[in-house]
Computed example of a mutant assay.
Amino acid sequence: MDRRGLGPWPFRSGQMALVLMLSLLLLACGFQLRGGTDVPPEMARTAITGLSAANPLFIDLQLVLNGAGVMLVPLGEATAELHIQDLRSGRRALSVGRNAQVSEYEIFTHLRYWVQGRGNDFQIPEQTLTLTRDYLFDPEGVLGQAEQEQRLRESMNRDLAQLILLRLRATAETP
């Protein structure tokens, strides 16, 4: 096997120079990875109300807000309150097979939320979010179906938390 010019690196010097030059060009033109937008500064110390701390959505919100630099604090210490209300979830039949048994279900989660500054004029008016997922029901695998539905609900909670964060970030971007 001929290893001429390869050395310990898998790139030849010409390839390495090209990669380095492209990197410098990207830096020079001001390229930045997206996602550096923060939540409004009034939300630096936020309290989540309307959910218990054991609620899976509360836990997912805590993770995404902490990741965005928001410190979750008790209401008395907060500069903003994120209030979750009307949190509902359920399941409904989407289709019925020839044998009059449900063959497809839709699960949903619906909530309303608003943000109110505490000691400042910051406010985000009431917003509504509804997520749905559907899945096929197999009467032979009822236990597996319950697990599938549970995984879908967990995924929906993570998606709801991300959507709330995106809306908060969008508020920070608007003048």
Rank of each mutant, 00 (worst) to 15 (best):
residue 126 E to I: 02
residue 114 W to Y: 07
residue 104 E to Y: 09
residue 7 G to T: 12
residue 9 W to E: 13
residue 136 L to C: 07
residue 92 R to C: 05
residue 93 A to R: 10
residue 52 S to D: 13
residue 16 M to R: 14
residue 9 W to S: 15
residue 171 T to Q: 14
residue 7 G to P: 10
residue 64 V to K: 00
residue 57 L to F: 06
residue 64 V to T: 05
residue 115 V to N: 07
residue 109 T to Q: 08
residue 141 G to I: 02
residue 23 S to N: 09
residue 96 V to I: 15
residue 91 R to P: 04
residue 91 R to L: 14
residue 100 A to W: 03
residue 89 S to C: 04
residue 79 T to H: 09
residue 59 I to E: 02
residue 58 F to L: 00
residue 81 E to P: 06
residue 158 R to Y: 11
residue 87 L to V: 03
residue 172 A to W: 01
residue 118 R to A: 04
residue 131 L to S: 06
residue 92 R to K: 06
residue 20 L to V: 07
residue 167 R to I: 08
residue 34 R to N: 02
residue 159 D to Q: 14
residue 82 L to M: 09
residue 170 A to Y: 04
residue 40 P to H: 03
residue 102 V to I: 15
residue 12 R to G: 11
residue 145 Q to H: 03
residue 136 L to P: 02
residue 72 L to Y: 04
residue 36 G to W: 12
residue 136 L to D: 11
residue 126 E to D: 14
residue 102 V to K: 10
residue 36 G to R: 15
residue 17 A to C: 01
residue 63 L to S: 08
residue 44 A to P: 00
residue 152 L to N: 07
residue 30 G to R: 05
residue 161 A to C: 04
residue 160 L to Y: 07
residue 159 D to V: 01
residue 165 L to P: 02
residue 14 G to W: 04
residue 20 L to W: 06
residue 154 E to I: 06
residue 167 R to L: 05
residue 67 G to L: 11
residue 123 Q to E: 09
residue 62 Q to E: 13
residue 101 Q to S: 12
residue 143 L to V: 12
residue 5 G to C: 09
residue 43 M to L: 01
residue 138 D to C: 08
residue 97 G to P: 04
residue 35 G to R: 07
residue 88 R to P: 03
residue 158 R to N: 09
residue 153 R to Y: 10
residue 148 Q to M: 15
residue 150 Q to K: 14
residue 88 R to V: 10
